[in-house]
Design a protein around this nucleic acid. Structure first.
Length: 120
DNA sequence: CTCATGACTAGCT
DNA sequence: TAGCTAGCCATGA
């Protein structure tokens, strides 16, 4: 086709960002996920930092950014900072237990929760 | 092009 | 659980 041999592969930055935002929005209310997990769901394994950058640049108030935490279940903001307090407050508002800026992450990746309920 | 920065992660002690 | 190191990727100076 008209275009040269460019690869419209799923590597386009804009598309990547779009998928990352979708992955964040896909997090159920009252649940949390890690940056790496979100990136993985977006088809961008190893791009946890990119996910973080996306959230830092995002301006969509409807985006549940507060459901995204570090892999160890800790808020990625400096303790005591505005973002830290804001995120903790939002999580608590959804029924998530936050302790010392730390959240109990799901025992397994969210993908398996359906399986867990199914197996039972 | 090189260097520094960042809402990161995994491994080791 | 906590601290340190190395690796990783995208951006901007």
């Amino acid at each position: 086709m008209g275009k040269r041999g460019d690869d419209p592969a799923p590597g386009d930055a804009d598309s990547a960002v779009d998928r990352l935002l979708a992955a964040v929005r896909a997090i159920p209310r009252g649940q949390v996920a890690g940056y790496g997990e979100v990136a993985r769901r977006a088809g961008l394994p190893g791009r946890a930092r990119l996910a973080a950058r996306v959230l830092s640049t995002n301006t969509d108030p409807t985006l549940p950014w507060h459901r995204v935490l570090r892999s160890d279940g800790r808020i990625a903001f400096p303790v005591g900072s505005e973002g830290f307090l804001e995120q903790g407050r939002r999580l608590r508002a959804e029924g998530v237990t936050v302790r010392e800026g730390r959240v109990r992450m799901p025992a397994r990746p969210l993908d398996l929760d359906a399986e867990v309920w199914g197996v039972r």
